[in-house]
Amino acid sequence: MQESIKSIFTESIQAQIAAGEVLPDALESAALTIVQGLINGNKLLCCGVNSCHMLAEHMAGLLVNFYETERPCLPAVALTQASVQLGNQATVDDTDRFARQVRAFAQQGDLLLVIAVNGNEKDIVSATEAALTKDMKVLVLVGDDGGELTGLLGPNDVEIRVPSKRPSRIVESHLFITHCLSQLIDDVLFPQGEQ
């Protein structure tokens, strides 16, 4: 069993090294896109597929609160996973839950951060489509080949694609990426002198 445990750690470390080799440009672009949106008075909306939604909530929380150093609140919100109720009507189809919230709460210029595993998850695809119809910039954290999400993105959007096909490694990298983005955003907006 101990060899298996060591193998799991080794695989995770190798996935992080591979991500570190290919993602710096995308991470820099994503951080600067978020910073510029915040400077312009816009907010970051975050959502994720079931296995990643806690990361969307975590990212929003890091901006509203702080990452490692106390600083002013930044406007970010995680869209709810709960199906939206329409009075006495039946609940909204789960594939439309995030898209409806984007249409209801987002303003032109706001940013949408979507976190997915393979990019073919219908609730995330429909949220991205809704954001694009509102002229929002979209930041995508995804793995595998990027799936359907990749085809939706324009030149002003940012794709951060983890170079892995294994869901567990992708989700682990997404957590690291949210921390990396939080630190980069703080470093730009609230520099602490020597870094």
Rank of each mutant, 00 (worst) to 15 (best):
E11F: 00
E11T: 08
E11V: 02
E11S: 13
I13P: 00
Q14R: 12
A15E: 01
A15C: 11
A15F: 00
A15R: 01
Q16Y: 07
I17S: 02
I17H: 03
I17A: 10
I17M: 06
I17K: 08
I17W: 01
A18I: 00
A19Y: 01
A19G: 06
E21A: 12
E21H: 11
L23Q: 00
L23W: 00
P24L: 04
D25I: 06
A26P: 05
A26I: 05
A26K: 08
A26E: 11
L27N: 09
L27D: 06
E28R: 15
A30Y: 12
A30R: 08
A31N: 13
T33P: 02
T33N: 06
V35R: 14
Q36V: 06
Q36H: 14
Q36S: 15
G37C: 07
I39R: 15
I39T: 11
I39C: 10
I39P: 02
N40G: 02
N40E: 14
N40L: 04
N40A: 13
G41E: 07
G41I: 07
N42E: 05
N42T: 06
K43M: 12
K43R: 15
L44R: 11
L44Y: 07
L45Q: 06
L45T: 05
C46R: 02
C46G: 02
C46P: 03
C46Q: 02
C47S: 09
G48S: 07
G48L: 05
N50E: 07
N50H: 07
S51K: 12
S51E: 14
C52F: 00
C52P: 00
H53D: 11
H53G: 04
H53A: 08
H53C: 06
M54A: 15
L55H: 04
L55G: 06
L55Q: 09
L55D: 05
A56Y: 07
A56K: 07
E57F: 08
E57R: 13
E57H: 08
H58C: 06
A60P: 06
G61V: 01
G61A: 01
G61E: 01
L62A: 04
L63A: 11
V64K: 11
V64Q: 13
N65T: 11
N65H: 14
F66A: 05
E68C: 05
E68I: 07
T69R: 12
E70K: 13
E70Q: 12
R71S: 11
P75W: 08
P75R: 09
A76R: 09
V77P: 00
V77E: 13
A78E: 00
L79S: 01
L79I: 03
L79R: 02
Q81D: 08
A82R: 12
A82E: 14
V84G: 01
N88V: 04
N88K: 10
A90G: 08
A90M: 10
A90L: 13
T91D: 12
V92N: 07
D93F: 10
D93I: 08
D93E: 14
D94A: 10
T95L: 07
D96M: 14
D96N: 10
D96P: 00
R97S: 05
F98R: 04
F98Y: 15
F98N: 05
A99F: 08
A99Y: 06
R100Y: 10
R100E: 04
R100K: 11
V102E: 03
V102R: 02
V102Q: 04
R103M: 05
R103V: 05
R103Q: 11
A104Y: 03
A104P: 02
A104M: 10
F105A: 04
F105R: 04
A106S: 13
D110A: 03
D110F: 04
D110R: 08
